[in-house]
């Protein structure tokens, strides 16, 4: 479990995160949602340790990041997998090279065992025939899968995903969401996904943290999101025409139930 306690962050005297409290549960896909510029990426970077919040604490299974020395921080980072928005694959490495990279750097396994593990991860994300291709030779969806394979190579306890569906078509987005959800449950990871894709929210939002203008306005799940009382969340959720239609249907259902 990852806990954020009273997290506040400033940039050049301007506050971007305000006293955020949230917990991200083990074995669940936890979503951070919010509009662009709401502060969700900054919040995620604080969670990962790429940024240090001026106030508040981040705890990984009770371990405070702030109190850790360099060696402890490096140790905990080997327990973290990260999927970046742009995949962040190493251009000069093949698919296999990318997945092997964390294993070569941190794994005590022999070279043969590392290869076996890498191929297992590649198979797990369904890229059996692409192991010798370079990132520039594969599609955006495949790049995301490679990034997922690299992120899970070391069997991480915590998996962070920054907008995993950006730039992908709806069908591929659903495949990536399902893959993330499957591996989260399979390996019992604490997965935190930063997104503003409502399909992801409804598909894999086992726990949802809504960030609005740097404030945590709502915490819930995919079942309760349509009935939330938060005005800012409703503005966000029902922004598209499709979800406005859904809202009308829900309102009609509610009226019918009252009658």
């Amino acid at each position: 479990m990852i806990e954020a306690k009273h997290v506040s962050k400033w940039f050049d005297g301007q506050q971007v995160l305000y006293d955020i409290n949230a917990t991200f549960d083990t074995g669940k896909t936890n979503l951070i949602i919010g509009q662009s510029g709401s502060g969700k990426t900054v919040f995620m970077k604080c969670l990962i340790g790429l940024m240090t919040p001026e106030e508040g604490e981040i705890l990984y299974d009770g371990r405070k990041i702030r109190n850790m020395n360099t060696a402890q921080r490096r140790q905990i980072r080997t327990e973290i997998g990260m999927l970046f928005q742009g995949s962040a694959l190493f251009d000069n490495e093949t698919v296999l090279g990318n997945v092997m990279f964390p294993l070569k750097m941190f794994s005590p396994l022999s070279h043969k065992e590392q290869l076996e593990r890498a191929y297992f991860c590649i198979r797990r994300v369904g890229l059996e025939n692409a192991d010798n291709k370079y990132p520039s030779e594969i599609s955006g969806g495949m790049q995301k899968r490679v990034a997922i394979a690299r992120a899970i190579a070391l069997n991480p306890k915590y998996l962070f995903c920054d907008e995993p569906n950006s730039g992908l078509d709806p069908k591929t987005s659903i495949l990536i969401d399902e893959l993330l959800s499957d591996i989260t449950h399979e390996y019992g990871m604490t997965t935190v996904i930063n997104t503003h894709d409502m399909n992801s929210v409804l598909g894999i939002g086992e726990k949802i943290v809504f960030i609005n203008r740097g404030h945590c306005d709502w915490i819930g799940d995919d079942k309760s999101i349509f009935r939330a009382k938060s005005e800012s969340l409703n503005d966000f959720v029902f922004a598209s025409k499709l979800f406005q239609e859904v809202k009308l249907v829900l309102e009609r259902e509610a009226e019918a139930a009252q009658k």
Partner: peptide, 17 residues
């Protein structure tokens, strides 16, 4: 610089490298 803007350096930092 390209590694920085494409987050490859961040990826290494997160891995603890």
């Amino acid at each position: 610089g390209t590694m920085r803007v494409t987050e490859q350096i961040d990826a290494m930092d997160i891995m603890g490298i």
